[in-house]
């Protein structure tokens, strides 16, 4: 799906806006990286796209998904879109999971939301998708409650939930921070395979610039609520124009 974000601003209370006049275009099937300073507005931007900001956030501008304006849609319409057409892997997995429900059931319910009347199929989907995110003990994991899993296991459960319905747009907010490099490689392959198979578009937020350079074709750089630079990955990383981008890329290149 294509996404067009124009002049998006988000403010909380009386403080300076957390996101200010952010705009970018995401073509069908494209993978756009979002990098930038901690606190620069990356997660708030994604939550605004998903319609998941708290009530007290003031959101202005325009977000359109395949031509449909999302800002101002009601809760019912938005929750129908979420999961079916767009989904998100949240930065902090623990807060996105229901602590009182086994994770397998949570994945199955996400699946059933958009595939009603699919009891057995849903259960099958759960194990298949857990296998794909690198679990060798999918059955045990699906029967666990969130607190019985490690940080990286919870992160993978969230990934499984985000891809299970094969939505047209997936927002990944720091999806591999809790994964060791071996599992990370496996998960990045899954992300690549899923996006390729379904032709979905992706917004990929990460502090790991090496990972962004491998997953994305283009990226935007955020700082202080604004996009300070954007462009094709090769150009952005080889010839950064903005001093902040240069500092980021050089620090990453030095490792």
């Amino acid at each position: 799906m294509s996404l067009s974000v124009r002049d998006l601003s988000v403010a909380f209370g009386r403080r300076a806006p957390a996101v200010e006049s952010v705009g970018f275009e995401l073509a069908d099937g494209e993978r756009l990286g979002v990098i930038g300073e901690s606190g620069s507005g990356k997660s708030v931007t994604s939550l605004a796209l998903m319609g998941l900001l708290p009530e007290y956030a003031r959101v202005t501008g325009s977000v359109s998904l395949d031509g449909q304006e999302l800002l101002g849609l009601g809760d019912r319409e938005l929750s129908k879109l979420r999961g079916e057409k767009m989904s998100m892997v949240f930065q902090e997995p623990m807060t996105a999971l229901d602590p009182t429900m086994r994770v397998g059931r949570q994945i199955a319910e996400a699946y059933r939301l958009h595939h009603p009347r699919s009891g057995a199929a849903a259960r099958e989907q759960v194990e298949t998708v857990l296998d794909k995110v690198g679990f060798t003990d999918a059955r045990r994991v699906s029967l666990s409650y969130p607190h019985e899993l490690s940080g990286g296991q919870r992160q993978r459960v969230l990934l499984a939930m985000a891809v299970v319905n094969k939505p047209g747009l997936i927002i990944f907010d720091e999806p591999t921070t809790a994964l060791d490099v071996l599992v990370q490689a496996e998960v990045l392959q899954l992300i690549d395979a899923t996006l390729t198979a379904t032709g979905a578009s992706a917004l990929f937020i990460s502090h790991n610039i090496a990972v962004v350079s491998q997953v994305c074709t283009r990226a935007v750089v955020m700082r202080g609520g604004r996009i300070v630079e954007d462009g094709p990955i090769a150009e952005l990383f080889e010839h950064p124009k903005h001093p902040y981008t240069r500092a980021l890329v050089e620090a990453a290149a030095h490792e």
Binding site: D180, V181, L182, Q184, A185, L188, N208, I209, A210, V211, S213, Q214, I233, A234, F237, E238, H239, P240, R246, V249, E250, A252, A253
Partner: peptide
């Protein structure tokens, strides 16, 4: 050894 080899590397870097 496998862990060390799997560290993702920057595909494009500053020249």
């Amino acid at each position: 050894r496998r862990l060390l080899a799997a560290v993702p590397r920057l595909k494009f870097g500053p020249s």
